[in-house]
């Protein structure tokens, strides 16, 4: 089952084999989750959005015209849902008047890093997360994001410098 192609698995799901979709979820969940994390910026929201993505994917799988493109298709759903999540969060923050990533208690270095990543611009955060968290190659990131490899390098370089600036500013903040 684990060795079957995306085409076979998608056709099997369409014919009612739910176990085939579980294989697809295990195959693409990490990618979907990291895309969600790259867009929304925090693990908690990314888990929710990734879960929603898999549910939507199953519901709409019969609309997938080219089963071989399941990976791209599900990642696209993940990005769209993540952007929707960001919009909802921005609206809620405007309503409440504070950011959720503000430190509420004494934080660790890992928390600082998570917070700094969350504060990166979305177009820089996504390639950074996919490159570092998923350990993917620049070429793979470029294919997933539909941009050139040089574009990915450029964004990674900017993201690193921006991250350094944010962490430095956080360190200087009393």
């Amino acid at each position: 089952m684990e060795q079957r192609s995306d085409i076979d698995l998608v056709e099997a799901v369409c014919q009612g084999q739910r176990s085939a979709y579980a294989v697809l979820v295990r195959r693409y969940y990490s990618q979907v989750f990291l895309v969600c994390l790259g867009v929304v910026g925090n693990v908690h929201d990314a888990e929710d959005v990734a879960q929603d993505t898999m549910v939507k994917g199953l519901e709409r799988i019969r609309q997938l015209r080219d089963p071989d493109q399941f990976g791209h298709w599900i990642v696209k759903i993940a990005r769209n849902l993540s952007i929707n999540c960001l919009r909802r969060r921005a609206a809620a923050e405007r309503l409440v008047g504070q950011r959720r990533d503000e430190p509420l208690a004494e934080s660790t270095a890992a928390d600082d890093l998570h917070r700094a990543v969350a504060r990166l611009p979305r177009d820089l955060r996504l390639p950074l997360v996919m490159y570092y968290f998923d350990g993917r190659s620049v070429k793979s990131v470029a294919q997933t994001l539909d941009i050139s490899t040089s574009g990915v390098y450029l964004k990674l370089r900017m993201a690193l410098r921006e991250l350094h600036d944010i962490l430095t500013a956080q360190g200087e903040t009393p």
């Binding site: 579980a22 979820v25 295990r26 879960q51 898999m54 549910v55 199953l58 519901e59």
Partner: peptide, 11 residues
Amino acid sequence: AIEALGDVAPV
């Protein structure tokens, strides 16, 4: 996430 799929079925 797989558990959360529950009884969701393709539309």
